[in-house]
Amino acid sequence: MKHLKTAALSFLGLLIASPAMANDRGEMVTASNPAGIVVAMLNAGHNPELTTDRVGDPLIISRGPGANLVVYFFGCDATTHDRCQSIRLQVGYDRAKPWSAQEAMKLSDEFPFLAVRLDQEGDPYVHWDLVLGDGIPVPTFVKNLRAFEESVTLAADLVYAEEKAEQAKGQ
Rank of each mutant, 00 (worst) to 15 (best):
V116P: 02
G56D: 06
T6I: 11
M1I: 04
C84R: 10
G13S: 12
A168R: 06
R95Q: 10
R54K: 13
H46L: 11
V38H: 06
C76N: 06
N68A: 15
V70I: 12
V138C: 01
N33W: 04
Y125S: 15
A20N: 04
D53R: 03
A67C: 00
G75T: 07
G64Y: 02
P48C: 07
K164A: 15
V55E: 14
L9V: 03
A165P: 03
P19K: 08
P34E: 10
N144M: 04
G56E: 03
D77L: 04
A35G: 15
S86Q: 12
L114M: 05
A161V: 05
T80C: 00
T6K: 14
A147G: 11
S86H: 06
Q102E: 13
S10M: 07
A96H: 07
G56Q: 04
A96C: 01
D82E: 13
D82H: 12
T51E: 08
Y72R: 11
I87T: 10
W128N: 13
P139I: 08
D24G: 15
L114R: 02
V159Q: 08
G135T: 05
K106F: 03
H127A: 03
D123G: 04
D53W: 04
A20I: 11
V70N: 08
L89K: 01
G66F: 11
D123Q: 05
S32W: 01
Q90Y: 00
V71P: 05
A20R: 07
E121F: 09
T140S: 14
N47G: 05
Q102H: 05
A35C: 08
G56C: 03
P98W: 02
E150R: 10
A17C: 02
F148P: 06
Q167V: 11
Q85G: 13
A17I: 02
T51Q: 06
L114Y: 02
V142W: 01
E162Y: 05
D123P: 03
Y125I: 04
V116T: 14
E163W: 00
M28E: 07
I60F: 06
A161S: 13
L89M: 14
R88G: 13
M1E: 11
S18W: 07
V55H: 04
H3Y: 08
N144P: 00
P48F: 06
L15A: 07
